[in-house]
Design a protein around this nucleic acid. Structure first.
Lengths: 106, 106
DNA sequence: TTGACATAACACCTAAAGGTTTCATATAAT
DNA sequence: ATTATATGAAACCTTTAGGTGTTATGTCAA
């Protein structure tokens, strides 16, 4: 039976530290674990756990290079979030929303 | 000192049940607690807790009517999520994204 | 005014989240 | 060969998340 991923996109981005990691990877393109951890006040081990959760949600990917494990952003799963959001956009008045709907449905 | 809200939008939508509650309120416009709870397999008490978390994030609001407490959707805080997302949109190739940027920055 | 209903307020439980420290292992550099 | 570096893995701790059930209180209806 499929192991049914424990963490989805919604849970992955619920934590501020993980959002900060995503932002960092967006800016720096790719970084090994230690370099990532250096940006935060918590331990490298804690960062590794956050990276595992992000990887489970497929928001980051990694490659091994020698003794380093280098992570990079993989933003595609955010489309799920975008889709979820789009349902609610019609509920708040945004003068641009009508125009955007026109564009998106073209 | 300000009580500093414990739950923000990101945490509020991390839970599937809470997302389902939001969806329900989007469809039914407004509902008392018991009516909401009737749609889920968990206890009314549990639903109340979820509603409190959603209310903390300001994603729902309520009014008292006699002995009932009637909740309705308040989607505005989702703009924060939308803004957060918009940063990452440039990172995944979407043929529409360029066009949308043009529209949004007009 | 009595009973039913809707919610609030507790006390309580279990598991997971987020963090720590310590130790082991693989690779790189001297 | 030895040492330093990068990561993995395990054991542990504390708080929170998500759920339960029970009891109390306010309101409506008969």
């Amino acid at each position: 039976m499929e192991p049914t991923k424990k963490h989805d996109v919604f849970q992955a981005i619920a934590d501020k530290t993980r959002r900060d990691v995503l932002r960092l990877l967006a800016e720096k393109k790719e970084l090994p674990i230690s370099a990532i951890a250096a940006h935060f006040p918590i331990s490298r081990t804690a960062i590794t756990k956050h990276l595992n959760i992000l990887a489970e949600a497929n928001l980051v990917q990694s490659r091994k290079s020698g003794r380093e494990k280098i992570y990079h952003l993989h933003p595609e799963p955010l489309t799920e979030l975008k889709q979820w959001l789009s349902f609610y956009e019609r509920f708040w008045e945004n003068k641009l929303s009508i125009l955007k709907h026109v564009v998106e449905n073209e």
